[in-house]
Design a protein around this nucleic acid. Structure first.
Lengths: 225, 225, 225, 225
DNA sequence: AATGAATGAGTTTTCATTCAT
DNA sequence: TATGAATGAAAACTCATTCAT
């Protein structure tokens, strides 16, 4: 049932894969930087270590990125666009209208897709979340390019389901926040806090999604909180 | 209904308020460090700025804390103990047994209390969450002294409610994770991402708790997930 | 005849000798910086060489001066004040009125004094002249604090002598420029271009002053320029 | 009256205009280098900025000039030859003999011509004067190829006028120095220190030349200084 | 001839930590 | 106990120069 969403998203992501323009060394720098930033945090990472891991001279980094911060931004900023890829599809709600009668099916499809995406880009996501609080321009970008963009597309959908009585009548922002928290909370535990523990990923994701879906479900809820 | 919990917690916290032993300068250093670490992150904070804000000489910091990292630990470690204060009460489950027949009441009482606590110690919580990923010893402490301790106390309670059919039969760790994620997600939005927005805190906390409670509620759930 | 001028100037200069406030290391840094800047020019001087010559750690320089440029300014700016010391004496023109009936005597006294001063502070003067063209703030300081201040005091004197028919009726700015050029030209030749040549300083200074004085003298000049 | 001098100078300069041998890119590099060196000084100029302004690749500069310093020399050295052009005319003194009975007329002709020349090549002159103190080989070249050459030609002329009692019996080197100082002093003020002020160039040049001429004039001077 | 990516030695600057007072 | 000057190792960044294309 969730196939179609995954399908357009895959196509979409490919169109974002513009790294073909980079030289091989630049790619190596980028990967090394992601590694080191994710491992030690931006401020505690040294360009000399990045250079070493990328097997280039330190000067080479500064030929491609004027400052260490620019290197950070060049990693984090594109991630924001990619993160919201499915939501900015031109026919986002149209497609949904046709295919997902139930909020649950829709949510499940999207969340599975985004959870999968986050999983695949974990180091960059980690860097992004770690650094947003310390770089106002990142925060602003995130609010503008992720928060607002996603809300803009998803609010009507949430409203529709709220009107149909499928999900609780709370502000759509809250719906988004609660959903994202649960997913990020899982990823954090799974990959940052306790990566060494054995995990049954499929089951955990199911549990998490159920939590979200029942947490937002309007059915079985007392008339007034 | 939640008064009793708050009451023991207050007493408990006072017993942890051991800052009385510190000199006034040491306290100023601690506060300045919390301020700066929360603002810029540990790695990007300089001891000289901390000294300046604390209005002490640079050397004075190192008289009280051998290294910058020790200063960090002296801030973060006690927070862990405080964070789990209510759970380590000797008669935790006993008290609960007596007072909270319904899972919901219990959860609400504890969550409100912890959310309030987190709110009041936001900078330190922020530092803790930011730095855990980069300091193995902090991570270990957190797992051992927070995660395990809380689980150890709360698992029996969760189990009880699960046996009674009040909450879904998922691993207690997951219950904890999902609850904590929702709360932290709120705090993050509220105080880090969008602090400038106007918030109706009481309502948001209610929404968040409802989300957790319904998300975990076993009632109204289809027989099999 | 020129004694009185030299006398107040000496006193004055002593009052400017505020270097007593500096630590010994700071003084060593300053002297080393003057040496190196004068030798190689500001841009071609490295802080590491300055540190070496001052026999301090490189970090020590930056404890006293936030940047290399601040170090430059701390050398050049005070020189400007000292350069114009005799002109800003409170009773500058009063004293002159009393003591110097003839323009020539006055000029000679001042010029000898300033030439002597410049000689004694040659490296700093050299740095100042070298760097002014490349640092707008230095240029502005020079114009405001040297050019204008000196003009302000000396214009009335020049005017007086012009009214008395002792010096040619050209703009006082030009009088100043022509006088300063001749002196600086001598110093440049004497200490920068051909320091290895044997010089009869007293005679050269005499020649230079005569040149200035006759060049500006109104007598023997055709009625109209 | 000054036409003849200007005439031979023009011819002379054309013979020096050997830039025809350069490729267009080389010329662009040269111009860019002059611009940047004059603006920031040699040591503070980067070859990459020069390349950018010349719209060539960084490597191209080093194809034409082995080092950055060679580029400097290729700019400054020819200027020295050009600077003394009128003096090295084969029939310098012969022509003068015939045409300029009075020292004043001669001096005025030459000075006007050189002042005009300096004005037209100000950036290079500026670079030359700025860099001579820091590059021994430039200094030597200047002394040998400018100082000595000019002296060699002009000393007999000056001597002649001194013998005729037209100019003061001071060392010819001093005559040259004093004259050059006054002119350079004017150019410095006019183009470096206060270029934004409104200047009546013709008048200033007149004033400056009068200053030189009267300053050197023997007439009206007391028998012995 | 021309390019421009790459280099690595060198630059300015920062900063945790020490220590004499 | 407190200070703050001093340190030196390491950081970010610059730049003249080289070289494969």
């Amino acid at each position: 049932m969730s196939e179609p969403v995954e399908q357009w998203v895959k196509e979409l992501l490919q169109s974002y894969d513009e790294e073909g323009k980079m030289t091989e060394k630049q790619l190596r720098i980028l990967n090394a930087a992601i590694e080191v930033f994710a491992e030690k945090g931006f401020a505690a990472s040294s360009t000399s270590e990045i250079a070493q891991r990328a097997a280039v001279a330190e000067g080479t980094i500064f030929r491609h990125y004027k400052t260490k911060k620019e290197l950070l931004l060049s990693i984090v900023a594109p991630m924001m666009s990619k993160l919201i890829a499915p939501f900015v599809l031109r026919d986002f709600s149209k497609v949904l209208d046709a295919k997902y009668a139930r909020y649950e099916d829709f949510m499940r499809a999207v969340l599975i897709n985004r959870a999968e995406f986050a999983r695949n880009h974990l180091p960059v996501i980690k860097i992004m979340l770690q650094e947003i609080p310390f770089h106002p321009e990142l925060k602003e970008q995130f609010v503008e390019r992720v928060g607002k963009k996603v809300l803009e597309r998803i609010v009507p959908v949430i409203r529709k389901f709220q009107d149909e009585g499928q999900i609780v009548p709370i502000p759509p922002e809250s719906v988004l926040r609660l959903s994202a928290s649960a997913i990020l909370g899982f990823l954090l535990m799974r990959f940052v806090m306790l990566p060494e523990r054995e995990w049954d990923d499929a089951k955990e994701i199911d549990t998490t999604l159920d939590f979200i879906l029942y947490g937002l479900s309007a059915s079985g809820r007392p008339p007034v909180a």
